[in-house]
Amino acid sequence: MRAGGPLARGAAGAGLALGLPAALLALWWVASAGSTNIFLPPLRVIVEAFGRVWLSGTFADDVVPSLWRLGASYGAALVVGVVAGYAIGRWPVARALTSPLLAYFRVLPAPVMIPVLLVAVGIGDATKLIVIGLGALWPILLNTADGVRAVDEVQLETAAAFRLPVWTRHRLTLRAATPQIFAGARQALGISIIVMVVSEMLMSTDGLGFTVTQFQRSFAIPEMWSGVLLIGALGFALAKLFELVERRALRWHRGHTGREEPS
């Protein structure tokens, strides 16, 4: 950037960042203000519904279970995915043994597992936990394996030449693979949110997906819109949170490659 000091740049940046969203929201507000179409209620009414619905008991009853399931499954997928991905990336025999299996499960869409688990495990939380975890697992596992496999040979040899202990060497390899692991984890986050909502739409008595579907079925349209906005905001917030963590963890990588985002 050529122009201005950090402060001026920050202000200009914020202006640019907030300008279009603010304009779009304002447009929605104004355009929908006099709307009599029951499917497209005025934004004002949606905002009122939002306060009424989500800032009350519903939050604890519906948002918390959703987030809990998401967090638990995603966390489990991270652990399993990184460990298994590491093994598969590190040892050619493990890779050869699993590659056709992985190729199959990678492309089997997670939502399809919902009816299977419904029959096999039942309608409880376990099914939702498993299906969200399965959705998140493959991107993490495959990216970890790719990342570990691509670790620079010179680095491994350097570590060996210095006679570093085996565990330190494993840690170094894993560390070198973190940019790819994060790329997989980011992809997995998006998928797990989708699978969470779908699983709640299909088989639940609580959760965001369930509640929004209920509102829609009972023609509580402003309430439904508020739920849609909440899911959208949730997806956005989690993505931003992830970005923050990634930025901190991968500071060395950005400096190293001079690139902002791996593509």
């Binding site: 499917f39 998006g190 949110i193 989708i194 909502v197 779908v198 739409m201 929004v212 579907t213 509102f215 829609q216 439904m224 819109w225 739920g227 849609v228 899911i231 959208g232 997806g235 956005f236 989690l238 993505a239």
Partner: peptide
């Protein structure tokens, strides 16, 4: 808009 899961569109 990108991280907004597309399936929120279903009820709408």
């Amino acid at each position: 808009l990108r991280p907004v899961p597309s399936i929120v569109l279903i009820p709408v």
